[in-house]
Design a protein around this nucleic acid. Sequence first.
DNA 1: GGGACGGTTCGGTGCCGGCCGAACCGTCGG
DNA 2: CCGACGGTTCGGCCGGCACCGAACCGTCCC
Lengths: 232, 232
Amino acid sequence: MSTGAKDLAALAALLADETRAAMCLALLDGRAWTAGELAAHAGVARSTATEHLHRLTEGGLLAEERQGRHRYLRLADPSVAGLLEDMAARLGPARPATGLRAVTAAAALQRGRTCYDHLAGRLGVALTDAMTTRGLLDQRGGFAVTEAGLAWLTGPAGLEPAAFERPKRPIARACLDWTERRPHLAGLAGARLCERFLALGWVARIGSGRAVRVTPAGSRGLRDLLGIEGLD
Amino acid sequence: MSTGAKDLAALAALLADETRAAMCLALLDGRAWTAGELAAHAGVARSTATEHLHRLTEGGLLAEERQGRHRYLRLADPSVAGLLEDMAARLGPARPATGLRAVTAAAALQRGRTCYDHLAGRLGVALTDAMTTRGLLDQRGGFAVTEAGLAWLTGPAGLEPAAFERPKRPIARACLDWTERRPHLAGLAGARLCERFLALGWVARIGSGRAVRVTPAGSRGLRDLLGIEGLD
DNA sequence: GGGACGGTTCGGTGCCGGCCGAACCGTCGG
DNA sequence: CCGACGGTTCGGCCGGCACCGAACCGTCCC
């Protein structure tokens, strides 16, 4: 038996429990949660959550940050988010929501949301499409930012050129959008654009979840920058 | 708790057992194994292997093909191979081999091997590098076959143009090479090239494992086609 | 037909791990 | 200093599952 099998099994075992899986999926919104929030979200006692969170951090999937009596947890690494997305993409779309509150929330998520550190939903797909039709992104043989795209990111889009010089993670990566059933832009470029749009106030979080909306300023900005219309 | 958590946990649970993990990793060589071979490889009784293999096929990770009294198993889908590769890439390289037989085998694997359906090891990386320096593959912002690369694949490389017209899987994908610690070409293009080189006799399997060697004909062919030297 | 062989089914066993509640520790705020 | 609160540790319970051997079923070949 190959030595790697034990390690692979150990990694998979971290996600093989419904409670831990729910915690990781919750953290896919890209923010840090407290241990208690994760316990409530997963529906288990705080003591149980503590054990799970220890296992996940020791396994390298989560990183913790202690502040006073709080313990904040987030995904350790963008690659963890990528792994979770890849696995979730195999599962097919979740069953449709029922109930007014759930439907409203689902509609908001479908319009726009964060997917770990980049934009998803109709907003994310529209961004991806606009970049593709303008020749900034090439989807024909993979998922790559073009020469023109790189110039655009560091020019009109206003991102730091330094960030793209010796990237530690792929600049462009396809992430399957589970509401739109099509890939959207992830990777370094997707993360920086999301960050930038939030900083500019073009996109704002709705409440405390992962849903986002396009602000009036964002509506103008996205139209001027990429010709994207009708997302607000 | 999100509905998706249960599904994600179920998927992960399939790989969360050392025996099943070993079976899946063995099948990463891209060929079909019999149930008995997998049982022996994993070191469990045949009855135990039967149960595991049932779970893996029902979970959609494996596909079976019955021939007479044999039951052949292979990975269900290239996307399963991709998932396994991504997970394996998180584990870091395996510990170095010890013992003469193991070291010889490891050296052969490092020179060249199949990684599911494409080439890996020094051979796979050399292929990837040669394509990149010739402008056929663009690694700057993702991992994509260029316009020139597509023409090359369907021209000098002798692949069917039809295969690349409405691809069901990414044409180019980066797969982290666990001996070379660098990405090599996977995806549709990687698979077709591997297939082609095996058919031409440029590359041949060593024994029954996943190790491959470059034949004298392959040495000439790869030099003429891509300027690759010194792999035999 | 009969033996060899690959694969499956079925009980039975033992262990691992997920869960909880209660007690406890450290931080924060009055 | 004390109560409230977030988080942790510990003991104990319970279910699930990985494993095996023995019996059984089909296929292949002599």
